[in-house]
Amino acid sequence: MKMPGFDISLVIIWALVAVLVVLAWRRGEGRLQRGLRRGFEMFLINGPRVVVALLAAGFLSYFLPKALIAEWLGHESGWQGILIGSAVGPFFPGGPLVIFPVLVALLKAGAGLPSVFAFLTSASVWGVHRIIMFEIPMMGPRFAAARMIASLALPPLSGLMAVLVIRLLGAPAGVIP
């Protein structure tokens, strides 16, 4: 388990905060206060949700059939893992709050990056929940259909690209089964 530590992601995040604080402050009209207040409110709202979501995902990881996931979605699973990842992605509602804890649990259980990337892409571009609740009511069924057809190949392509990137750069540390 990672411990709270000082790494590159933390440096990038807070460097960006600093840049934006300067930008907002220079543009004035209370922008800095409004932006900071919005950020803190988002943190207060999402923090408790993340705590309970992570708790649920943590318990879930003990019940996931690890052997089955490693076999179906692992690095050796090839096309089959990519297609399974693409097929189940759209049916995870709730946005990143649900998707990312599930991703972490899948990776812990031995899933490979190609299937996980395919899963994340299909959850992102084909999320049924969002299409039904927002896209069809606001943009109409024709637009939604055109967009879905246009992004049909993206989930399996993401898995294929993961295979390519891993072949080019080597497997990233910490996710090899």
Binding site: P4, I13, V17, V21, R27, G35, R38
Partner: peptide
Amino acid sequence: AVMGDIDLFLFLVPRMLGGMLIAGLVQVV
């Protein structure tokens, strides 16, 4: 499981707070 989640959450807090501040500031800039 709970200890693991506490570790993960402590790791997340400074990153999430930073991310939310970025999101809030981007909206006004």
